[in-house]
Amino acid sequence: MKPTIYDVAQAAGVSIATVSKVINGTGRISEKTRNHVLSVMDQLKYQPSMVASALTGKSTFTIGLTIPDLANPFFAEIARAVEDRGHEYGFNVFICSTDNDPEREIRYYSLLTQKRVDGIIVATRIQNDQFLKKLISQNIPIALITNEMPTLAVDTVMVDDFLGGYQAGNYLAELGHRHIAIIAEDLVNKSNLERIRGCKQAMMAAAVEFDDRLLAVGEFTVQSGKEAMLRLLELDDRPSAVFACNDLLAIGAIQAARERGLHMPHDLSVIGFDNTVLATIIDPPLTTIGQPIQEIGRQAIDLLVQEIKGEKSLKQRVVLLPELVVRSSCMPKEPIEIP
């Protein structure tokens, strides 16, 4: 049987109230007594019940994080940043990978509420705002990452997607490219729409006309980027450059170009978005729009913990700036020769 708080009190020769104060860090207890009780807890391998703490109105020091895919380097780095920052505050983080499945997402939210988490960080595409509204009505602090829902009273941490798209389009235009394609994850996600809009705006400012046939849409995978690029390469007037709305799509585009016998970046310039670790190990190293991933995770935890502790009442919208990271996957426009 697992030891109980009563076992700890009896073994330590103190009252249950004293053990409770040690566990919760409350009340006046001498350092000697505190250390003695902690030593007994360690000997008995006693673990306080987080659920019991929640039922008495105390913090469980746990936070939930929902992400679409832990295998995706961007979200893996987000999860690591959130977890590291959470540990600095003394919080454990439950990471839930939803695979963008609405039913799975709801099951995770239900599980997290059953576990009495102190708050939830949502880094998934918002597919059920009604359920999030229900969580908010239950006074569960919520923070959004990389998403924005103006209808929800929650803290939001995101990057300026429009600016990032503009930086990508402007860079390719400055290199002399006039036939620029865009590969996007989908046309529902607001982040994607803003990146596309920013790229088009930069092209317009550089007097570069955008051909709607050069917009290819897929999923958030390398394979989807590859398939989209292969479709673009079938066009009579092939693009000389591609802006992919995330690094996975950009890597897929590079793979497709190589499969068609193109030499990178001489025959095709590719720029991504995110600046994940994959951008540094692909050949050629990927020029990309860097998101401050670590800062996104830190800011989200900071805002959530402040709300959990009652240190703020107003919701905040934090917009961080992206940065063009130049590597070797882009070069000035030269004629394309395809076998």
Rank of each mutant, 00 (worst) to 15 (best):
V93K: 10
D118I: 10
D236E: 08
A184E: 13
L248F: 03
Q47A: 09
P284A: 08
I296R: 01
F61L: 15
Y171H: 11
K21S: 15
I271W: 01
F75C: 09
V318R: 02
A71R: 11
L135F: 06
R34D: 14
P284V: 02
K32E: 15
G27T: 14
C96K: 09
V82K: 05
D155M: 06
P141R: 08
R28P: 07
L321S: 07
G290C: 02
K45S: 08
S30A: 13
V37P: 13
F210H: 14
I301Y: 09
A17H: 15
A250M: 08
E307R: 14
Q130N: 13
V318A: 02
N24A: 13
I271R: 04
T280P: 02
R260Q: 10
S240K: 01
C96L: 06
L215F: 12
Q306V: 03
P68R: 04
E307G: 10
T151E: 13
E311G: 06
G272T: 04
T56E: 12
Q127F: 03
A202G: 05
I16C: 07
A168F: 00
K309N: 07
G119I: 09
Q294R: 08
R327K: 07
A184L: 08
K45C: 02
E83D: 15
L232C: 03
E295W: 01
A168Y: 00
S15T: 14
K315H: 11
I63E: 12
V8H: 11
K32Y: 04
P68S: 06
I5G: 05
P73K: 10
L215M: 09
A123I: 02
H263L: 02
V22Y: 15
R298H: 07
T26V: 11
V222Q: 05
R260H: 12
K312N: 11
A253K: 03
G225P: 09
H87Y: 12
S20A: 15
L214Q: 07
F210K: 11
K309H: 12
S313K: 14
K21F: 15
Q299R: 08
M1F: 08
H36N: 14
F220M: 02
E77H: 12
G272P: 00
Q299K: 10
I142R: 03
D42N: 10
I126Y: 07
L320H: 02
L70R: 14
R116V: 10
Y46L: 04
D274H: 00
I281T: 12
D69P: 02
V277I: 14
L214V: 09
A153M: 13
N100M: 00
A253W: 04
Q255T: 08
H266V: 10
L175P: 00
K309Q: 12
P265C: 04
A12H: 15
L112V: 12
F91D: 03
I271E: 02
K134M: 03
